[in-house]
C-alpha cells in the first residue's frame, strides 16, 4: 500500500489525519478514495493540489502511476512567475 502524506491545510478536512496508507494505482484513484473517506474535503480540492510521487511532482495528471511502495505527498498547487 502506498504511503500518503497530506501537507498544508488538508488535514483540517481529514479529522486531523495527516498520514495514511491506501491501495491505489493512480492519482485519480487516490483522489476518489480520499474524497470517499473524508467527505469534508472540498469538492474541488484536487484542483488545488500538486501530488509528489516518490519525489516527482505532478499537477493535473489523473493517470500518473502510484506503486504499492510509493511515498505520495499532497502539496499546495505550484505556480510560478
Amino acid at each position: 500500500m502506498a504511503r500518503i502524506v497530506l501537507t498544508g491545510n488538508l488535514q483540517l478536512h481529514t479529522e486531523g489525519v495527516s498520514e495514511l496508507e491506501l491501495d491505489v494505482n493512480t492519482i485519480r484513484q487516490l483522489m476518489r478514495q480520499l474524497s470517499t473517506r473524508y467527505p469534508g474535503l472540498p469538492a474541488d480540492f484536487e484542483d488545488e493540489v500538486a501530488v509528489s510521487i516518490d519525489g516527482t511532482i505532478y499537477q493535473d495528471d489523473w493517470f500518473a502511476e502510484i506503486a504499492p511502495d510509493s511515498e505520495v505527498h499532497l502539496l499546495p498547487r505550484i505556480g510560478g512567475g
Binding site: 502524506v5 501537507t7 509528489s52 516518490d54 519525489g55 516527482t56 511532482i57 511515498e71 505527498h73 502539496l75
Partner: peptide, 13 residues
C-alpha cells in the same frame, strides 16, 4: 541531496 526529505515534505529527486 537525492532522497533527502525536503523541508516541505516530499523526498527530493
Amino acid at each position: 541531496k537525492q532522497g533527502s526529505q525536503s523541508s516541505y515534505g516530499p523526498k527530493f529527486p
